[in-house]
Amino acid sequence: MNTLPQQLANGLFLGSMYGLIAIGYTMVYGIVQLINFAHGEIFMTGGFGALTVYLALPSGTSMWVALPLMLIGGTLVAVLIATGAERFAYRPLRNAPRLAPLITAIGLSLALQEAVRNWYPQATSARVFPQINAGPWNIGSVNISSGDVFVIIAAPICMAALASFVRATRTGRAMQATAQDPDTAQLMGIDTNRVIVIAFAIGGLFAAVASLAYGLRYGQVKYDMGFQAGLKAFTAAVLGGIGNIYGAMLGGLVLGVAEALATAYIANIPGMGQFGGQGWASVWAFILLILVLLLRPQGLLGERVADRA
């Protein structure tokens, strides 16, 4: 089905998933000015964590029981790896030149991929991910699968919870203070190391939710699934204005919708026939990124602030 509403729905699904992952990039960058390039792999390990829980359950367990347990399992794994990376890989390099943590992040990303590929049973190729046995539903001309429903419900809940956490709680205010001025935050009595760990943990949690959405939608998880998804989510974070949590979600949605529309409609433009379809989706996504960086370098919702580093 190639109707416009269907493409918009596809875009919203993709975009919600990008947005959830982008939160992890943007929160960490906002607080420690680090691009955690291993975040795509944290997303991937979340998917394998969830799969592990599912495989441990007795066969025939209803997905309605399994799903919450899978979410908990995926979250545990992703949060543990995210906070472990902070503690053991990034924290020792907090005052090192910026290139050092960046290279560390890339190394960590490869290490996590290889670890899963080599040590997770039969993970050298894609592993089948369980499906919710319901739907698909037709709303007008739009066809929605059960996997879509999961993310379309989960993403707004996660975002609303995060927004009120950051705005209304004491830890949330400590987070804002640390992002704006880490030294002065310490002078207020804020343990900035703790704040940084929490930022990584929230990133891990959101990545785990996204990985479940991915598995449910595509019916599989694979050791390298974090590469593309991570790159797109990073793009979404930059698109929305890195450091801004609302920007991450907005950037995700804009990117997802743009990708879906480009896939479906570019080929209809006379002379552009060969540039449509799934194979070109990423190209159009990155062209969008380049345009935004040229026309509005701080991103859609970003503020033009001097670089602190």
Partner: peptide, 12 residues
């Protein structure tokens, strides 16, 4: 803290 309000600054 420039992007927090005056009252939020005092609370911090």
């Amino acid at each position: 803290f420039p992007r927090l309000t005056i009252e939020e600054n005092l609370k911090l």
